[in-house]
Design a binder for these strands. Structure first.
Lengths: 159, 159
DNA sequence: CAAAATAATTGACATAATTACAATTTTGAA
DNA sequence: TTCAAAATTGTAATTATGTCAATTATTTTG
C-alpha cells in the first residue's frame, strides 16, 4: 500500500498559466475518474512538468516515487485522462505521443534540430477567434483543433 | 497556388501507371532526387491516390506492379521525398504516419468514428494569410505548419 | 468488522510501425 | 564495357503501445 495522500502538487507557476487546479483529487472526481494514488501522482507530474513528456518519460520519473509502478498503468491512465479531456495528446512525428496537461487552445512548435517542443501562443491571432466560433467545417463536427509548426528554434539558430 | 501534384492527379484514374512518368521524372530531378524506377512509381502512386496512405498501404499497392519491392525501399523513398519537400508526412494519432503528395497549405480532419482523413480548405481564412506571411514566431524559424482537426465527420453524424 | 464484489494495477507477452545494416543488384559516368 | 557509387533487398532489431489473466487494493454489503 502506498503512503496516503498529503499535500498534492506544489505549483511553481512557471509553465502553468492557463488554469490553475487547486485540488487534483476533486478535479479527477469531477471528471468521473476515481482518484487512485497512481492517477493523482501521474496527473500531478503532468501539471508540474509541462514539457510535453512521452509515456516513457512519465514512467521513468514517476516510478521514482512509486517503485512498483507498471508502464501499463501509465498507458491506461493517460488514455483515461485523454478520453476525459484532462490532458491533450500530441503527435507530431517519430511515432511518439506526447502529453500536455495544458488543454487550452495553443499551438506547438517542434525544433527539427534539437527536438524540443515549444508552446506557441495563438490567442491573439484573428484566425483562432474564428476557429473557436466555428464548431463545424464542411459539415464535420470538430472536437479538437491542432496547429503544429516545425522548423529551427531560436536556440538552434545561434549555431 | 497549386503545385504540380494537384495538376498531375487529374490526368489519370485507374491506369495511373501509363501516363504521368515523364513529368514526375523531371520533378524528381528538379528536386535533386535521381529518378529511379521505384521512386517514380512510388511518387506516381502518391499523386494518383491522395487518400493520405500509410507506408504499409503504399507498399501493398505498389508491390502489385513491382513484385520485388521491399518495404525498406518504401520507407527510404518516403523519407527522401519528405526531406526534399516533395511530400508532406502527417502524424495525427495511432502511431501511423500518413503521406500526402499535396504539399499546399491545408488542414486535415480525422473522424474519430470512422478514422477517415479529410482535407480541409483553409485558404479563405484570414488566419492562414497571416501564417503564410510570418516566417517566424517567437523567434523560431518555421519550415512547416500543420493544422489538425478531430471530431465526427459528416457521414458518421448521420448514425 | 469481515466477507464479497468491484476496480485498479501488475507483468509477461503480443503486435505493429519503423529502422539498421550487410549483402546484392542496378545505374550512370568514363 | 567497365566499375564505382547509388539504390534496393531481406532479415533482424528496436520502439511504442496494446492485451490479458493474475494479483492487489478499494468499496460495498451484511
Amino acid at each position: 500500500m502506498m503512503p496516503s495522500s498529503r499535500a498534492l502538487r506544489k505549483n511553481s507557476g512557471k509553465n502553468w498559466h492557463h488554469n490553475v487546479v487547486p485540488d487534483i483529487k476533486e478535479l479527477l472526481l469531477k471528471n468521473g475518474i476515481s482518484p487512485s494514488y497512481h492517477r493523482l501522482k501521474i496527473y500531478e507530474y503532468l501539471v508540474n512538468n509541462q514539457v510535453h513528456p512521452t509515456a516513457d518519460m512519465i514512467y521513468a520519473d514517476v516510478i521514482k516515487n512509486i517503485p512498483t509502478l507498471s508502464k501499463t498503468t501509465i498507458y491506461n491512465t493517460l488514455k483515461t485522462f485523454a478520453e476525459k479531456g484532462l490532458v491533450s495528446s500530441i503527435t507530431i512525428e517519430d511515432n511518439e505521443v506526447r502529453y500536455d496537461a495544458d488543454i487550452s487552445l495553443h499551438g506547438h512548435f517542434k525544433c527539427l534540430s534539437c527536438g524540443a517542443l515549444y508552446d506557441i501562443e495563438i490567442d491573439h491571432l484573428p484566425v483562432e477567434k474564428k476557429l473557436i466560433i466555428n464548431r463545424k467545417i464542411d459539415g464535420h463536427l470538430i472536437t479538437e483543433k491542432h496547429i503544429y509548426f516545425r522548423g529551427i528554434c531560436k536556440k538552434c539558430q545561434r549555431n
